[in-house]
Amino acid sequence: MMKRARDFFSGTGNMTKKLVEECEELVIVNDGTEDLTFTAGYTTWTLKPGEVFDERITGFESIAITATGAYRGYVRNDA
């Protein structure tokens, strides 16, 4: 089944985003000059400046981001 991008987000500081439905695919781009930390589901990751996280992970309904620089992202879900 084809996945569609939805629930786009961007920011320059801390953010918690509640999703409309449970998702399993997440894309985050760290456009800043400092590390970005995010939690989706029960796992926390750190992205270095310029890194891209584009993975299928355990289902999650919210994303918590800790950052001091710019970032952007979205989730993918069934069409």
Rank of each mutant, 00 (worst) to 15 (best):
K17T: 11
T16R: 00
Y42C: 08
D35E: 15
W45G: 07
R4P: 00
I63W: 07
T43A: 14
N14Y: 08
D35P: 15
E24S: 12
M15K: 02
Y71D: 06
M15P: 06
E24T: 07
A67N: 11
T44P: 04
T66W: 02
G50D: 13
I65N: 08
V75S: 03
D78M: 07
A70I: 07
R6V: 08
E22G: 10
K3G: 13
M2C: 05
T43F: 05
G69V: 12
G32C: 02
V27R: 09
K17E: 11
M1K: 05
G32T: 07
A40M: 05
Y71I: 07
Y74G: 10
F60W: 04
G13W: 01
N30V: 08
E55S: 10
M2Y: 11
N77L: 02
E51A: 15
T68N: 11
A67C: 12
N14E: 10
K18Q: 08
A40D: 12
G73E: 03
V75T: 13
D35M: 01
Y71A: 05
L26P: 15
T33Q: 14
G59A: 15
T46W: 02
N14D: 15
F60Y: 09
T37G: 03
K17L: 14
G69E: 09
G32A: 07
E34D: 10
W45L: 10
P49Y: 09
E22D: 11
A67P: 03
S10L: 03
T12R: 05
F53M: 09
D7S: 12
F9M: 07
A79Q: 08
V20N: 04
F38C: 01
S10M: 12
T44L: 08
R72E: 10
F38T: 03
E55M: 11
E24C: 01
W45D: 14
T68F: 02
V20H: 09
V52R: 11
N77K: 04
N14R: 01
E61M: 11
D7L: 03
T16C: 01
T58K: 08
E55N: 13
Y42D: 14
E22A: 15
V27A: 07
D31R: 10
E55L: 09
V52S: 04
T66M: 02
E51G: 01
T68L: 09
K3V: 12
T66L: 04
E22S: 15
R6T: 05
D54G: 10
D78Y: 06
I63A: 08
I65F: 14
T12L: 00
R6K: 10
I28W: 02
E21D: 11
K17Q: 12
E61Q: 13
P49L: 09
E55I: 02
A79R: 00
L47V: 05
P49E: 11
T37I: 02
G41K: 08
T33M: 13
T43I: 10
N77Y: 14
K18T: 09
G73C: 06
V75R: 01
C23W: 07
F53G: 04
G41W: 09
E55Y: 14
T33I: 13
E21Q: 12
D35Y: 05
V29R: 06
E25W: 13
E61K: 14
G59N: 09
T16P: 03
R56G: 15
E61I: 07
T58A: 13
G13L: 01
T44S: 14
L47Y: 03
T16F: 00
G59K: 08
G50S: 14
R6S: 15
E61G: 15
E55Q: 06
G11S: 03
W45H: 03
G73F: 11
R6W: 06
F8W: 10
D35T: 13
G11D: 01
